[in-house]
Amino acid sequence: MADDGIIAIAACIAIATTGFASAWAEKEIGSAAVGAMAEDKSLFGNGLILTVIPETIVIFGLVLAILLWTQMGA
């Protein structure tokens, strides 16, 4: 089986990169959404949805990391 250390690093990369990607995307969308909300308050719902959409990226990263983690010590 693969070395546990390598698996841990792989899980780490999965979380770190996807987390960074989500954060970046949310930052862009979030600031635009706040700008739009300043113009029209009723856009809150849409702004919220658009902002949380990239959250999926890090969720996939997390799931991948979990799957890798369960392989450790196997």
Partner: peptide, 16 residues
Amino acid sequence: MTNVLSYTRLAAIGMS
């Protein structure tokens, strides 16, 4: 497909 996988967050967030 990503829609279905998106629901894994239910487990992931509970786990965190």
